[in-house]
Design a protein around this nucleic acid. Structure first.
Lengths: 259, 259
DNA sequence: CGGGCTCTTGAGAAAGTTCAATGAACGTGG
DNA sequence: CCACGTTCATTGAACTTTCTCAAGAGCCCG
Protein backbone atom coordinates (compact mmCIF):
# COMPACT_ATOMS: atom_id res chain seq x y z
CA UNK A 1 0.00 0.00 0.00
CA UNK A 2 1.54 3.29 -1.07
CA UNK A 3 1.74 6.06 1.50
CA UNK A 4 3.22 8.22 -1.25
CA UNK A 5 1.14 9.54 -4.15
CA UNK A 6 1.36 7.52 -7.35
CA UNK A 7 0.60 10.42 -9.65
CA UNK A 8 -0.14 8.25 -12.62
CA UNK A 9 -3.50 7.24 -11.14
CA UNK A 10 -4.74 10.80 -11.44
CA UNK A 11 -7.50 11.21 -13.96
CA UNK A 12 -7.04 13.72 -16.72
CA UNK A 13 -8.07 17.15 -15.43
CA UNK A 14 -9.31 17.93 -18.93
CA UNK A 15 -13.06 18.20 -18.82
CA UNK A 16 -14.94 18.09 -22.09
CA UNK A 17 -18.37 19.59 -22.53
CA UNK A 18 -21.36 17.35 -22.47
CA UNK A 19 -22.83 16.78 -25.93
CA UNK A 20 -26.59 16.81 -25.61
CA UNK A 21 -28.35 14.59 -28.11
CA UNK A 22 -31.69 15.38 -29.73
CA UNK A 23 -33.65 16.76 -26.76
CA UNK A 24 -36.74 15.16 -25.31
CA UNK A 25 -37.86 12.72 -27.95
CA UNK A 26 -41.17 11.22 -26.92
CA UNK A 27 -40.38 8.04 -28.79
CA UNK A 28 -36.95 7.60 -27.27
CA UNK A 29 -37.84 5.46 -24.25
CA UNK A 30 -40.34 3.42 -26.23
CA UNK A 31 -37.63 2.42 -28.67
CA UNK A 32 -34.87 2.13 -26.07
CA UNK A 33 -33.28 -1.30 -26.22
CA UNK A 34 -31.70 -1.14 -22.80
CA UNK A 35 -34.92 -0.27 -21.02
CA UNK A 36 -35.63 -3.79 -19.87
CA UNK A 37 -32.15 -4.03 -18.35
CA UNK A 38 -32.56 -0.92 -16.25
CA UNK A 39 -34.67 0.90 -13.68
CA UNK A 40 -36.74 2.34 -16.53
CA UNK A 41 -38.45 -1.00 -16.74
CA UNK A 42 -40.45 0.09 -13.71
CA UNK A 43 -42.46 2.46 -15.89
CA UNK A 44 -45.38 1.03 -17.85
CA UNK A 45 -45.42 1.06 -21.65
CA UNK A 46 -48.23 3.59 -21.77
CA UNK A 47 -46.36 6.12 -19.68
CA UNK A 48 -43.06 6.09 -21.49
CA UNK A 49 -43.65 9.55 -22.91
CA UNK A 50 -43.45 10.88 -19.35
CA UNK A 51 -40.17 9.08 -18.82
CA UNK A 52 -38.82 10.56 -22.07
CA UNK A 53 -39.74 14.02 -20.89
CA UNK A 54 -38.18 13.50 -17.49
CA UNK A 55 -34.78 12.73 -18.93
CA UNK A 56 -32.34 13.90 -21.55
CA UNK A 57 -30.06 11.69 -23.58
CA UNK A 58 -26.40 12.69 -23.80
CA UNK A 59 -23.46 11.27 -25.71
CA UNK A 60 -20.14 11.70 -23.95
CA UNK A 61 -16.65 11.16 -25.36
CA UNK A 62 -14.07 8.98 -23.55
CA UNK A 63 -12.47 10.60 -20.51
CA UNK A 64 -15.39 12.91 -19.75
CA UNK A 65 -15.83 13.83 -16.11
CA UNK A 66 -19.49 13.18 -15.37
CA UNK A 67 -19.38 13.65 -11.62
CA UNK A 68 -16.79 15.42 -9.53
CA UNK A 69 -16.45 14.25 -5.93
CA UNK A 70 -17.88 16.77 -3.50
CA UNK A 71 -19.95 18.80 -5.96
CA UNK A 72 -23.73 19.27 -5.53
CA UNK A 73 -25.71 16.21 -6.51
CA UNK A 74 -27.93 17.62 -9.22
CA UNK A 75 -28.35 14.68 -11.57
CA UNK A 76 -28.88 10.95 -11.79
CA UNK A 77 -27.77 8.99 -14.84
CA UNK A 78 -28.76 5.78 -16.54
CA UNK A 79 -26.13 4.27 -18.84
CA UNK A 80 -27.47 3.15 -22.23
CA UNK A 81 -24.13 2.61 -24.00
CA UNK A 82 -20.49 2.37 -22.97
CA UNK A 83 -18.82 2.10 -19.57
CA UNK A 84 -18.42 4.63 -16.76
CA UNK A 85 -15.94 4.30 -13.90
CA UNK A 86 -16.87 5.38 -10.38
CA UNK A 87 -14.14 6.21 -7.92
CA UNK A 88 -13.09 7.80 -4.66
CA UNK A 89 -9.79 9.55 -4.05
CA UNK A 90 -7.47 10.46 -1.22
CA UNK A 91 -6.05 14.00 -0.98
CA UNK A 92 -2.64 12.82 -2.18
CA UNK A 93 -4.04 11.36 -5.40
CA UNK A 94 -4.39 7.71 -4.50
CA UNK A 95 -7.56 6.47 -6.14
CA UNK A 96 -9.93 3.55 -5.74
CA UNK A 97 -12.34 2.69 -8.52
CA UNK A 98 -15.42 1.39 -6.74
CA UNK A 99 -17.14 0.04 -9.81
CA UNK A 100 -17.70 0.15 -13.52
CA UNK A 101 -21.22 1.11 -14.60
CA UNK A 102 -22.00 -0.66 -17.87
CA UNK A 103 -25.14 -0.58 -20.00
CA UNK A 104 -28.28 -0.75 -17.88
CA UNK A 105 -26.65 0.55 -14.72
CA UNK A 106 -27.39 3.83 -13.00
CA UNK A 107 -25.12 6.27 -11.21
CA UNK A 108 -25.41 9.40 -9.19
CA UNK A 109 -27.75 8.32 -6.42
CA UNK A 110 -27.00 9.93 -3.06
CA UNK A 111 -28.74 11.13 0.07
CA UNK A 112 -26.28 13.83 0.89
CA UNK A 113 -26.52 17.06 -1.03
CA UNK A 114 -23.17 16.40 -2.67
CA UNK A 115 -21.70 13.44 -4.50
CA UNK A 116 -19.45 11.27 -2.37
CA UNK A 117 -17.66 9.86 -5.43
CA UNK A 118 -16.45 10.81 -8.88
CA UNK A 119 -17.45 9.39 -12.25
CA UNK A 120 -15.70 9.46 -15.60
CA UNK A 121 -16.45 7.84 -18.94
CA UNK A 122 -14.13 5.01 -19.99
CA UNK A 123 -15.14 5.03 -23.66
CA UNK A 124 -17.86 6.80 -25.61
CA UNK A 125 -20.89 6.69 -23.36
CA UNK A 126 -24.56 7.35 -23.85
CA UNK A 127 -26.60 8.21 -20.78
CA UNK A 128 -30.07 9.41 -19.91
CA UNK A 129 -29.80 12.21 -17.41
CA UNK A 130 -32.50 12.84 -14.82
CA UNK A 131 -32.32 16.03 -12.81
CA UNK A 132 -32.95 15.51 -9.14
CA UNK A 133 -36.52 16.90 -8.92
CA UNK A 134 -37.51 14.87 -11.96
CA UNK A 135 -36.12 11.71 -10.44
CA UNK A 136 -37.96 12.36 -7.18
CA UNK A 137 -41.20 12.85 -9.04
CA UNK A 138 -40.76 9.56 -10.89
CA UNK A 139 -40.02 7.78 -7.62
CA UNK A 140 -43.17 9.18 -6.04
CA UNK A 141 -45.48 8.70 -9.02
CA UNK A 142 -44.33 5.25 -10.10
CA UNK A 143 -44.01 2.77 -7.24
CA UNK A 144 -42.66 0.13 -9.61
CA UNK A 145 -39.89 2.48 -10.66
CA UNK A 146 -38.94 3.03 -7.04
CA UNK A 147 -39.14 -0.69 -6.31
CA UNK A 148 -36.91 -1.42 -9.24
CA UNK A 149 -34.40 1.19 -8.12
CA UNK A 150 -34.37 -0.28 -4.62
CA UNK A 151 -33.60 -3.65 -6.18
CA UNK A 152 -30.77 -2.16 -8.25
CA UNK A 153 -29.18 -0.45 -5.25
CA UNK A 154 -29.48 -3.68 -3.28
CA UNK A 155 -27.65 -5.52 -6.06
CA UNK A 156 -25.05 -2.81 -6.17
CA UNK A 157 -24.51 -3.22 -2.44
CA UNK A 158 -24.06 -6.98 -2.81
CA UNK A 159 -21.46 -6.35 -5.52
CA UNK A 160 -19.71 -3.86 -3.28
CA UNK A 161 -19.51 -6.48 -0.54
CA UNK A 162 -18.03 -8.97 -2.97
CA UNK A 163 -15.45 -6.36 -3.95
CA UNK A 164 -14.60 -5.73 -0.30
CA UNK A 165 -13.84 -9.44 0.05
CA UNK A 166 -11.59 -9.15 -2.99
CA UNK A 167 -9.78 -6.03 -1.75
CA UNK A 168 -9.41 -7.18 1.82
CA UNK A 169 -8.63 -10.85 1.47
CA UNK A 170 -7.68 -11.97 -2.03
CA UNK A 171 -4.17 -12.24 -3.49
CA UNK A 172 -3.17 -10.33 -6.63
CA UNK A 173 -3.64 -13.47 -8.68
CA UNK A 174 -7.10 -14.07 -7.26
CA UNK A 175 -8.08 -10.45 -7.80
CA UNK A 176 -7.13 -10.42 -11.45
CA UNK A 177 -8.82 -13.77 -12.06
CA UNK A 178 -11.98 -12.53 -10.30
CA UNK A 179 -11.98 -9.40 -12.42
CA UNK A 180 -11.58 -11.22 -15.72
CA UNK A 181 -14.18 -13.76 -14.68
CA UNK A 182 -16.72 -11.12 -13.74
CA UNK A 183 -16.27 -9.32 -17.03
CA UNK A 184 -16.63 -12.37 -19.25
CA UNK A 185 -19.23 -11.86 -21.95
CA UNK A 186 -21.89 -14.46 -22.61
CA UNK A 187 -20.79 -16.53 -25.66
CA UNK A 188 -21.97 -15.01 -28.96
CA UNK A 189 -23.42 -18.32 -30.11
CA UNK A 190 -25.30 -19.68 -27.11
CA UNK A 191 -25.34 -23.22 -28.43
CA UNK A 192 -21.65 -23.53 -29.20
CA UNK A 193 -19.90 -23.75 -25.83
CA UNK A 194 -16.58 -22.05 -26.54
CA UNK A 195 -14.95 -22.57 -29.87
CA UNK A 196 -12.01 -20.36 -29.07
CA UNK A 197 -12.71 -19.29 -25.51
CA UNK A 198 -15.02 -16.76 -23.90
CA UNK A 199 -14.33 -13.11 -24.62
CA UNK A 200 -13.71 -10.61 -21.84
CA UNK A 201 -14.82 -6.99 -22.13
CA UNK A 202 -11.94 -4.72 -21.12
CA UNK A 203 -12.54 -1.19 -22.40
CA UNK A 204 -10.52 0.30 -19.54
CA UNK A 205 -6.75 0.76 -19.22
CA UNK A 206 -4.36 -1.07 -16.92
CA UNK A 207 -4.34 1.95 -14.63
CA UNK A 208 -8.09 1.64 -14.21
CA UNK A 209 -7.89 -2.09 -13.61
CA UNK A 210 -5.17 -1.55 -11.03
CA UNK A 211 -7.18 1.16 -9.29
CA UNK A 212 -10.19 -1.14 -9.27
CA UNK A 213 -8.31 -4.11 -7.84
CA UNK A 214 -6.25 -2.19 -5.31
CA UNK A 215 -2.98 -3.12 -7.03
CA UNK A 216 -0.34 -1.38 -9.15
CA UNK A 217 -0.31 -1.54 -12.94
CA UNK A 218 2.88 -3.55 -12.79
CA UNK A 219 1.32 -6.25 -10.65
CA UNK A 220 -1.74 -6.39 -12.91
CA UNK A 221 0.46 -6.68 -15.96
CA UNK A 222 2.66 -9.39 -14.43
CA UNK A 223 -0.35 -11.37 -13.29
CA UNK A 224 -2.07 -11.23 -16.68
CA UNK A 225 1.20 -12.33 -18.28
CA UNK A 226 1.39 -15.25 -15.86
CA UNK A 227 -2.17 -16.34 -16.66
CA UNK A 228 -1.30 -16.10 -20.36
CA UNK A 229 1.91 -18.11 -19.87
CA UNK A 230 0.02 -20.92 -18.18
CA UNK A 231 -2.65 -20.89 -20.92
CA UNK A 232 -5.61 -19.96 -18.74
CA UNK A 233 -6.18 -16.97 -21.05
CA UNK A 234 -4.96 -15.79 -24.50
CA UNK A 235 -4.90 -12.67 -26.62
CA UNK A 236 -2.06 -10.24 -27.05
CA UNK A 237 -4.40 -7.32 -27.63
CA UNK A 238 -4.61 -5.40 -24.35
CA UNK A 239 -8.33 -4.86 -24.52
CA UNK A 240 -9.23 -8.21 -26.02
CA UNK A 241 -8.61 -11.20 -23.80
CA UNK A 242 -10.01 -14.68 -24.24
CA UNK A 243 -10.54 -17.14 -21.45
CA UNK A 244 -9.32 -20.58 -22.46
CA UNK A 245 -10.29 -22.36 -19.27
CA UNK A 246 -13.32 -20.85 -17.59
CA UNK A 247 -13.27 -23.44 -14.82
CA UNK A 248 -9.64 -22.82 -14.06
CA UNK A 249 -10.22 -19.08 -13.94
CA UNK A 250 -13.12 -19.47 -11.56
CA UNK A 251 -11.09 -21.75 -9.32
CA UNK A 252 -8.32 -19.19 -9.12
CA UNK A 253 -10.85 -16.41 -8.52
CA UNK A 254 -12.44 -18.19 -5.59
CA UNK A 255 -9.14 -19.08 -3.95
CA UNK A 256 -9.13 -22.81 -4.68
CA UNK A 257 -5.81 -22.66 -6.37
CA UNK A 258 -2.58 -24.59 -6.01
CA UNK A 259 0.17 -22.13 -6.95
CA UNK B 1 -2.51 -11.15 1.59
CA UNK B 2 -2.71 -14.73 2.86
CA UNK B 3 -3.06 -17.47 0.27
CA UNK B 4 -3.27 -19.95 3.16
CA UNK B 5 -6.23 -20.20 5.53
CA UNK B 6 -5.85 -18.34 8.82
CA UNK B 7 -8.14 -20.57 10.81
CA UNK B 8 -8.52 -18.17 13.66
CA UNK B 9 -10.84 -15.99 11.59
CA UNK B 10 -13.44 -18.73 11.52
CA UNK B 11 -16.53 -17.88 13.49
CA UNK B 12 -17.63 -20.22 16.23
CA UNK B 13 -19.73 -23.00 14.68
CA UNK B 14 -21.83 -23.05 17.82
CA UNK B 15 -25.26 -21.73 16.99
CA UNK B 16 -27.50 -20.72 19.84
CA UNK B 17 -31.26 -20.67 19.63
CA UNK B 18 -32.99 -17.39 19.08
CA UNK B 19 -34.70 -16.09 22.20
CA UNK B 20 -38.03 -14.61 21.18
CA UNK B 21 -39.13 -11.75 23.40
CA UNK B 22 -42.73 -11.00 24.30
CA UNK B 23 -44.45 -11.61 20.96
CA UNK B 24 -46.33 -8.98 19.01
CA UNK B 25 -46.82 -6.21 21.48
CA UNK B 26 -48.98 -3.53 19.92
CA UNK B 27 -47.30 -0.88 22.02
CA UNK B 28 -43.77 -1.95 21.16
CA UNK B 29 -43.13 0.24 18.12
CA UNK B 30 -44.89 3.20 19.68
CA UNK B 31 -42.50 3.10 22.61
CA UNK B 32 -39.43 2.13 20.58
CA UNK B 33 -36.63 4.62 21.17
CA UNK B 34 -34.67 3.68 18.09
CA UNK B 35 -37.57 4.14 15.71
CA UNK B 36 -36.54 7.59 14.57
CA UNK B 37 -33.07 6.31 13.75
CA UNK B 38 -34.32 3.53 11.49
CA UNK B 39 -36.47 2.64 8.50
CA UNK B 40 -39.44 2.29 10.87
CA UNK B 41 -39.63 6.06 10.89
CA UNK B 42 -41.30 5.75 7.48
CA UNK B 43 -44.48 4.51 9.17
CA UNK B 44 -46.85 7.07 10.58
CA UNK B 45 -47.61 7.24 14.31
CA UNK B 46 -51.19 6.10 13.80
CA UNK B 47 -50.15 2.92 12.00
CA UNK B 48 -47.53 1.69 14.40
CA UNK B 49 -49.74 -1.17 15.54
CA UNK B 50 -49.45 -2.60 12.05
CA UNK B 51 -45.68 -2.34 12.23
CA UNK B 52 -45.67 -4.09 15.59
CA UNK B 53 -47.70 -6.92 14.15
CA UNK B 54 -45.46 -7.25 11.11
CA UNK B 55 -42.36 -7.88 13.19
CA UNK B 56 -41.14 -9.82 16.16
CA UNK B 57 -38.59 -8.65 18.67
CA UNK B 58 -35.76 -11.05 19.52
CA UNK B 59 -32.91 -10.88 22.00
CA UNK B 60 -29.78 -12.70 20.86
CA UNK B 61 -26.71 -13.58 22.93
CA UNK B 62 -23.18 -12.71 21.70
CA UNK B 63 -21.85 -14.97 18.95
CA UNK B 64 -25.27 -15.91 17.57
CA UNK B 65 -25.35 -16.73 13.87
CA UNK B 66 -28.22 -14.67 12.51
CA UNK B 67 -27.62 -15.29 8.81
CA UNK B 68 -25.65 -18.05 7.17
CA UNK B 69 -24.18 -17.25 3.75
CA UNK B 70 -26.04 -19.06 1.01
CA UNK B 71 -29.17 -20.00 2.97
CA UNK B 72 -32.66 -18.92 1.83
CA UNK B 73 -33.38 -15.26 2.53
CA UNK B 74 -36.43 -15.54 4.73
CA UNK B 75 -36.06 -12.59 7.06
CA UNK B 76 -35.05 -8.97 7.33
CA UNK B 77 -33.81 -7.49 10.62
CA UNK B 78 -33.71 -4.10 12.22
CA UNK B 79 -31.17 -3.69 15.02
CA UNK B 80 -32.54 -1.99 18.15
CA UNK B 81 -29.65 -2.77 20.51
CA UNK B 82 -26.11 -4.09 20.18
CA UNK B 83 -23.88 -4.66 17.17
CA UNK B 84 -24.03 -7.25 14.38
CA UNK B 85 -21.14 -8.08 12.06
CA UNK B 86 -21.78 -8.83 8.38
CA UNK B 87 -19.21 -10.80 6.44
CA UNK B 88 -18.32 -12.81 3.37
CA UNK B 89 -15.95 -15.77 3.31
CA UNK B 90 -13.71 -17.65 0.94
CA UNK B 91 -13.83 -21.47 0.81
CA UNK B 92 -10.51 -21.74 2.70
CA UNK B 93 -11.79 -19.68 5.63
CA UNK B 94 -10.46 -16.25 4.83
CA UNK B 95 -13.09 -13.78 5.90
CA UNK B 96 -13.94 -10.16 5.20
CA UNK B 97 -16.26 -8.30 7.49
CA UNK B 98 -18.16 -5.93 5.22
CA UNK B 99 -19.73 -3.89 7.97
CA UNK B 100 -20.97 -3.59 11.50
CA UNK B 101 -24.70 -3.00 11.89
CA UNK B 102 -25.28 -0.94 15.01
CA UNK B 103 -28.51 0.38 16.53
CA UNK B 104 -30.86 1.71 13.86
CA UNK B 105 -29.35 -0.28 11.02
CA UNK B 106 -31.05 -3.01 9.08
CA UNK B 107 -29.67 -6.24 7.65
CA UNK B 108 -30.84 -9.06 5.48
CA UNK B 109 -31.97 -7.25 2.38
CA UNK B 110 -31.34 -9.17 -0.85
CA UNK B 111 -32.79 -9.66 -4.29
CA UNK B 112 -31.55 -13.15 -4.75
CA UNK B 113 -33.42 -15.95 -3.03
CA UNK B 114 -30.46 -16.63 -0.79
CA UNK B 115 -28.28 -14.44 1.41
CA UNK B 116 -24.98 -13.46 -0.18
CA UNK B 117 -23.38 -12.82 3.20
CA UNK B 118 -23.32 -14.02 6.77
CA UNK B 119 -24.27 -12.17 9.96
CA UNK B 120 -23.35 -12.80 13.56
CA UNK B 121 -23.98 -10.89 16.76
CA UNK B 122 -20.95 -9.22 18.34
CA UNK B 123 -22.54 -8.67 21.75
CA UNK B 124 -26.06 -9.10 23.10
CA UNK B 125 -28.30 -7.86 20.34
CA UNK B 126 -31.94 -6.93 20.11
CA UNK B 127 -33.56 -7.02 16.69
CA UNK B 128 -36.98 -6.74 15.14
CA UNK B 129 -37.42 -9.51 12.63
CA UNK B 130 -39.62 -9.07 9.58
CA UNK B 131 -40.38 -12.13 7.50
CA UNK B 132 -40.06 -11.55 3.80
CA UNK B 133 -43.78 -11.39 2.88
CA UNK B 134 -44.40 -9.01 5.76
CA UNK B 135 -41.59 -6.74 4.63
CA UNK B 136 -42.90 -6.72 1.06
CA UNK B 137 -46.34 -5.77 2.27
CA UNK B 138 -44.94 -2.89 4.29
CA UNK B 139 -42.96 -1.69 1.27
CA UNK B 140 -46.06 -1.74 -0.90
CA UNK B 141 -48.47 -0.24 1.62
CA UNK B 142 -46.22 2.49 3.01
CA UNK B 143 -44.38 4.50 0.35
CA UNK B 144 -42.55 6.46 3.04
CA UNK B 145 -41.23 3.23 4.49
CA UNK B 146 -39.92 2.21 1.10
CA UNK B 147 -38.45 5.63 0.50
CA UNK B 148 -36.70 5.51 3.82
CA UNK B 149 -35.33 2.06 3.08
CA UNK B 150 -34.04 3.25 -0.29
CA UNK B 151 -32.26 6.07 1.52
CA UNK B 152 -30.74 3.62 4.01
CA UNK B 153 -29.45 1.32 1.30
CA UNK B 154 -28.04 4.29 -0.56
CA UNK B 155 -26.16 5.34 2.57
CA UNK B 156 -24.96 1.81 3.05
CA UNK B 157 -23.61 1.82 -0.49
CA UNK B 158 -21.75 5.07 0.11
CA UNK B 159 -20.20 3.55 3.22
CA UNK B 160 -19.22 0.48 1.24
CA UNK B 161 -17.46 2.68 -1.31
CA UNK B 162 -15.58 4.44 1.45
CA UNK B 163 -14.52 1.05 2.78
CA UNK B 164 -13.32 -0.01 -0.67
CA UNK B 165 -11.09 3.05 -0.72
CA UNK B 166 -9.76 1.99 2.67
CA UNK B 167 -9.18 -1.64 1.67
CA UNK B 168 -7.70 -0.90 -1.72
CA UNK B 169 -5.59 2.15 -1.09
CA UNK B 170 -4.92 2.92 2.57
CA UNK B 171 -1.95 1.83 4.69
CA UNK B 172 -2.43 -0.20 7.88
CA UNK B 173 -1.95 2.95 9.93
CA UNK B 174 -4.53 4.84 7.90
CA UNK B 175 -6.98 1.94 8.11
CA UNK B 176 -6.84 1.67 11.87
CA UNK B 177 -7.10 5.45 12.27
CA UNK B 178 -10.10 5.53 9.91
CA UNK B 179 -11.76 2.75 11.86
CA UNK B 180 -11.28 4.39 15.24
CA UNK B 181 -12.39 7.72 13.85
CA UNK B 182 -15.55 6.29 12.33
CA UNK B 183 -16.49 4.58 15.58
CA UNK B 184 -16.00 7.59 17.81
CA UNK B 185 -19.03 8.30 19.95
CA UNK B 186 -20.48 11.79 20.23
CA UNK B 187 -19.26 13.35 23.52
CA UNK B 188 -21.54 12.59 26.49
CA UNK B 189 -21.71 16.26 27.43
CA UNK B 190 -22.33 18.14 24.19
CA UNK B 191 -21.15 21.44 25.63
CA UNK B 192 -17.86 20.25 27.04
CA UNK B 193 -15.55 19.63 24.07
CA UNK B 194 -13.39 16.76 25.33
CA UNK B 195 -12.39 16.69 28.94
CA UNK B 196 -10.45 13.46 28.64
CA UNK B 197 -10.86 12.60 24.94
CA UNK B 198 -13.63 11.15 22.83
CA UNK B 199 -14.64 7.58 23.55
CA UNK B 200 -14.59 4.93 20.83
CA UNK B 201 -17.10 2.10 20.75
CA UNK B 202 -15.24 -1.18 20.20
CA UNK B 203 -17.45 -4.11 21.23
CA UNK B 204 -15.71 -6.40 18.73
CA UNK B 205 -12.47 -8.37 19.12
CA UNK B 206 -9.15 -7.75 17.37
CA UNK B 207 -9.94 -10.62 15.01
CA UNK B 208 -13.09 -8.83 13.91
CA UNK B 209 -11.29 -5.52 13.51
CA UNK B 210 -8.60 -7.22 11.45
CA UNK B 211 -11.17 -8.95 9.26
CA UNK B 212 -12.92 -5.64 8.77
CA UNK B 213 -9.75 -3.75 7.84
CA UNK B 214 -8.22 -6.46 5.66
CA UNK B 215 -5.26 -6.88 8.02
CA UNK B 216 -3.99 -9.44 10.54
CA UNK B 217 -4.62 -9.14 14.26
CA UNK B 218 -0.90 -8.62 14.78
CA UNK B 219 -0.81 -5.59 12.50
CA UNK B 220 -3.92 -4.13 14.14
CA UNK B 221 -2.39 -4.65 17.56
CA UNK B 222 0.95 -3.14 16.58
CA UNK B 223 -0.73 -0.15 14.98
CA UNK B 224 -2.95 0.56 17.98
CA UNK B 225 0.13 0.29 20.20
CA UNK B 226 1.94 2.80 17.99
CA UNK B 227 -0.97 5.26 18.15
CA UNK B 228 -0.98 4.83 21.91
CA UNK B 229 2.79 5.34 22.14
CA UNK B 230 2.57 8.63 20.23
CA UNK B 231 -0.34 9.78 22.44
CA UNK B 232 -2.96 10.04 19.69
CA UNK B 233 -5.11 7.65 21.72
CA UNK B 234 -5.15 6.21 25.28
CA UNK B 235 -6.76 3.40 27.22
CA UNK B 236 -5.32 0.06 28.11
CA UNK B 237 -8.71 -1.65 28.11
CA UNK B 238 -9.07 -3.44 24.80
CA UNK B 239 -12.64 -2.39 24.22
CA UNK B 240 -12.36 1.09 25.65
CA UNK B 241 -10.16 3.49 23.73
CA UNK B 242 -10.08 7.26 24.04
CA UNK B 243 -9.04 9.60 21.29
CA UNK B 244 -6.74 12.28 22.66
CA UNK B 245 -6.29 14.18 19.40
CA UNK B 246 -9.29 13.95 17.12
CA UNK B 247 -7.68 16.19 14.52
CA UNK B 248 -4.53 14.11 14.44
CA UNK B 249 -6.56 10.92 14.06
CA UNK B 250 -8.54 12.36 11.20
CA UNK B 251 -5.39 13.54 9.48
CA UNK B 252 -3.91 10.07 9.70
CA UNK B 253 -7.18 8.53 8.51
CA UNK B 254 -7.33 10.69 5.41
CA UNK B 255 -3.72 10.07 4.46
CA UNK B 256 -2.33 13.50 5.34
CA UNK B 257 0.28 12.08 7.62
CA UNK B 258 4.01 12.56 7.93
CA UNK B 259 5.33 9.24 9.24
C1' DC C 1 9.41 9.01 -38.34
C1' DG C 2 9.43 10.90 -33.86
C1' DG C 3 6.89 11.83 -29.56
C1' DG C 4 3.48 10.26 -26.50
C1' DC C 5 1.04 6.74 -24.41
C1' DT C 6 0.36 2.24 -22.60
C1' DC C 7 2.08 -1.98 -21.37
C1' DT C 8 5.73 -5.26 -20.02
C1' DT C 9 9.66 -6.93 -17.51
C1' DG C 10 13.46 -6.89 -14.08
C1' DA C 11 15.77 -5.89 -9.57
C1' DG C 12 15.70 -4.07 -5.10
C1' DA C 13 12.92 -2.22 -1.19
C1' DA C 14 9.21 -2.00 2.01
C1' DA C 15 4.91 -2.99 4.17
C1' DG C 16 2.53 -6.36 6.15
C1' DT C 17 2.22 -11.45 7.12
C1' DT C 18 3.63 -15.65 9.37
C1' DC C 19 5.43 -18.07 13.08
C1' DA C 20 6.42 -18.17 17.81
C1' DA C 21 6.55 -16.82 22.53
C1' DT C 22 4.73 -14.20 26.36
C1' DG C 23 1.32 -11.75 29.06
C1' DA C 24 -3.26 -10.32 30.70
C1' DA C 25 -8.14 -11.28 31.71
C1' DC C 26 -11.75 -14.38 32.75
C1' DG C 27 -14.42 -18.28 34.23
C1' DT C 28 -14.44 -23.00 36.22
C1' DG C 29 -13.92 -26.20 39.58
C1' DG C 30 -11.44 -28.18 43.33
C1' DC D 1 -9.74 -18.47 47.17
C1' DC D 2 -6.49 -19.96 44.15
C1' DA D 3 -4.77 -23.12 40.42
C1' DC D 4 -5.74 -24.10 35.79
C1' DG D 5 -7.26 -23.85 31.14
C1' DT D 6 -8.96 -20.77 27.63
C1' DT D 7 -9.37 -16.87 25.09
C1' DC D 8 -7.65 -12.54 23.63
C1' DA D 9 -3.95 -9.28 22.95
C1' DT D 10 0.89 -7.91 22.50
C1' DT D 11 5.57 -8.11 20.85
C1' DG D 12 9.67 -9.86 18.26
C1' DA D 13 12.08 -11.90 14.24
C1' DA D 14 12.08 -13.91 9.76
C1' DC D 15 9.84 -14.18 5.53
C1' DT D 16 6.77 -13.18 1.42
C1' DT D 17 4.06 -10.57 -1.46
C1' DT D 18 3.52 -6.62 -3.58
C1' DC D 19 5.34 -2.05 -4.46
C1' DT D 20 8.79 1.16 -6.28
C1' DC D 21 11.99 2.50 -9.46
C1' DA D 22 13.93 1.95 -13.89
C1' DA D 23 14.39 0.62 -18.53
C1' DG D 24 12.66 -0.96 -22.79
C1' DA D 25 9.04 -2.54 -26.22
C1' DG D 26 4.81 -1.86 -28.89
C1' DC D 27 1.51 1.16 -30.86
C1' DC D 28 -1.07 5.17 -32.41
C1' DC D 29 -1.23 9.63 -34.49
C1' DG D 30 0.20 13.66 -36.31
Amino acid sequence: MPPAPPLRTQSIPLRRRFTPDAGTDLQRCLLCETREKSVCNGIGDTELAILSQASKRLTLPPGTTMIEEGTPAVAFFNVTAGTVKLFKSLPDGRRQITGFADVGHFLGLTNAGTYSFGAETVNTVQVCRFLRPQLEKLLTDYPLFERRLLAEVTDELAEAQEQMLLLGRKTARERVASFLFSRMLPPATPSQPDAEGCLVSLPMTRVDIADYLGLTIETVSRTISALRREKTITGTDNHGIRVLSVNRLQEIASGQDSR
